[in-house]
Amino acid sequence: MSGFFINLVEVTAATVLDVLPIAIILFVFQALVIRRKPAKLKRVLIGFVYVLMGLSLFLVGLQEALFPIGKSMAEMLTNPEFLNIEAGSPVRWQDYIWVYVFAAAIGFATTVAEPSLIAVSLKAQEVSGGSLRAFELRIAVAIGVAFGVSIGAFRIVSGTPLPYYIMAGYGLVICQTFLASKPIIPLAYDSGGVTTSTVTVPVVAALGLGLATSIPGRSPLLDGFGLIAFASVFPIVSVLGYDMLISWLRGKNQSSSKKINKELNS
């Protein structure tokens, strides 16, 4: 238990150090450029304390409860013994089905809990006047991450080059950009950057490292990277896809209601 408190103090100190540059920049600009006391200063300061305390507790809790078990899980699932693979036999991607399932499930689950994604989706809901639902947006992003991390795991197992996958992802995003409705585009691009932070990176990185270490012929340094890249490109695809799906459903509804109106009128 005392280890827990030592950890809490350490994490809080690290979070404070993280916030410090931001606080200094904000303070300098308030004092030198804007030269006015910000409105509701006390409330803002309390808000900052909440953010600090909240993030510290969040991180300590993750370190105590989830990261160790998530990481050991990633190691066990990539272990040839668990996968019933004989030593020296050639790598077959089919043997790693549980790895892909785990990659998708953990990618989805960690993204739903990602605080920066919560922040962006709340703002999007507020700005859109509620027509974009924060929770639906997060689910769309999480599906993208699930798909991305799973394909990324397949790439490490199969040993195929990373750039082709990412380029295919980019190509898809470019095509979708021309088809999706305009207001979703900036938000979709943003969602690629926010998916991978506090919760997702440690677990996903452990998975990549575990895979690259246990598969013969893969180097952890060279092949262990790239999963984060998958988790940043595919959410853009899924959010744009979510928008296209909604427009399509809406169009279908409208045309069917038009039909009904027509029938009623005739």
């Binding site: 309390i46 808000g47 900052f48 909440y50 953010v51 909240g54 605080p115 919560i118 709340l122």
Partner: peptide, 8 residues
């Protein structure tokens, strides 16, 4: 964290 987000 979410509370602090909205406040700060």
């Amino acid at each position: 964290f979410v509370q602090g987000l909205e406040m700060g």
